[in-house]
Write a protein that binds this DNA or RNA. Sequence first.
RNA 1: GCGGGUGUAGUUCAGUUGGUUAGAACGCUUCCCUGUCACGGAAGAGGUCGCGGGUUCGAGUCCCGUCACUCGCGCCA
Length: 594
Amino acid sequence: MHSYRSHTCGQLRKSNVGESVKLSGWVHRKRDHGGVLFIDLRDTHGLTQVVAEGNAELEKIRAESVITIEGEVVNRAEGTTNAKMPTGEIEVVVKSVTVQSHAEVIPFQVAEDDGAGEDVRLKYRYLDLRREGMHSRVRLRNNVIAAMRRRMWAEGFQEFNTPILTASSPEGARDYLVPSRLHPGKFYALPQAPQQFKQLLMMSGFDRYFQIAPCFRDEDGRADRLAEFYQLDMEMSFVEQEDIFRVMTGVIGGIFEEFADFTGEKRRVEFLPNMKYADAMNTYGSDKPDLRNPLVLCDVTDVFKRDDVTFNAFKGVIEKGGVVKAIRAPKVADRPRSFFDKLNDWARGEGAVGLGYITVKDGVGAGPIAKFVPAEAQGQLNKIAGLEEGDAIFFICDKEDKALKFAGRARDKICDDMDIREKGVYKLFWIVDFPMYEFDEKAQKIDFSHNPFSMPQGGLDALNGPDPLKVLATQYDCVCNGYELASGGIRNHRPDIMERAFAIAGYSKDVLEKKFGGMLNAFRYGAPPHGGCAFGVDRIVMLLADEPNLREVYAFVMNGQYEDPMMNAPSDITEAQLKDLHLKLNLPKKVEAA
RNA sequence: GCGGGUGUAGUUCAGUUGGUUAGAACGCUUCCCUGUCACGGAAGAGGUCGCGGGUUCGAGUCCCGUCACUCGCGCCA
């Protein structure tokens, strides 16, 4: 007979009645009736009820201890079956027990969700992972990754591993650095993405690369952003943007459809047409708009410029080059004053002056600032924003980029307060035509707005045009329900165009050679046109699991301050280690005092 | 770096206008119970009210500072 088990805890059925079996697992729940004792025994496959009579060892056993039982599968008496359990028609009558491991009193409940906070869950993550929710989400993640590999291989892609210890890159996020023992004073960097390596694979003649790639970025976290994360990274040669879209819409769309019923309710998957970056910003105030939100932005600067409109708070901003963006909220004019006050409070809490609004009641404007807008101007406002009886319109006035960004957030907030976000659907689409450059206000210079390696639309001619800020990049994102799922581009494979592209952003040829010489050299020995993108694996799983936080779909993960309370990372190191690495600490005073 | 929220038993939380010995549920300990499946019943243990300072006759409650966690902003080419 097997040492630990003949069956799993999710396996036994009526057909097994009469068999002698061995089960091993955790004590999920215990119900002691004095003479008779029930234990729900759990492993990763399920639960089985085992029954014991007068067993002193089992009577003492604590929840989450690990035991092995031998016994006989029997039919449950009529009226005592449990339709909620797949194994609920049978039970195992215990003949002998081996306690593999006694559990101490657990810090939070495993058998149910007792709402324990993230702190304590992360400290005892192995217990947290035993719980049904985490257990199934981590399994979902495995299934999604398996599906990604299966689908990518089916499309003819090959998986490559690329270095984890690599060179620091000057652009983008902060790198995680690793000191070199053999080369005093030098550092490796953990990759923010395998960007250069995957392009080098295209130079190497492989024309379809992918990898479930670990990526590292030393920037402050968010609910959907961690220090380390995984991407489905891919690259193809001899392709245009539409070729990438065709392949990846198929792969990712297929995965969404495959797992859209994970939560128990089947969700729809919709593919929407590509959207230009400029349209996304102007219509939604975001480069990753949630299209389940029906609200849109419009520009009503002209209305507030009118001589007969006397709202001076906006006029002053407009004179300094500002704009007025507006959001039409249908059929909310009858909402209580508190609806509008709450939005105003939210706006002020976010650092705005407030969220001005006008409601349309009985054909005329109403609300605090309506008195500054005479009938004729109100008419123009109605026309621009499509206002109808019973609607409200909210205003955001600021410099254009700030106004758009804040209007985008207000759009989401108003949608939530109105409770009109569409449910049960994934809305996937590509955002295209990102600008190549932006003006960096702080440095007072032109800089890359996204990936410096993407091909400018129009090539060298476009870069030699009069206004670099008007040049578009062959750069795109994939967006779903307000999350940026992927980012990518058709790459610049021409050294001459790259030199010019970097020159515009103020990087000399020397700097370019020094930082990207390896890749630039490769371009000089025959580079195929190529492009690709990278999808955030964890964000996809998060959407499929309907969880608002990445930490809910990762087995082991750091907290919001990028600490691991279970492993105690990051941690101090010894003097000897520092010496080996030729390092001396220079700590801020605050840390030294503590 | 900045802002919002939270911090009371192992866990999740309640705690009134500043006023008796700080409560509940779950968990834990002991006992009773032969058909439960969130078993039931009885008794019990368990608290640096995040930390420090202040106001007050008196502080979980008010004030100042500080720390931790969390969400967001900045940042994330």
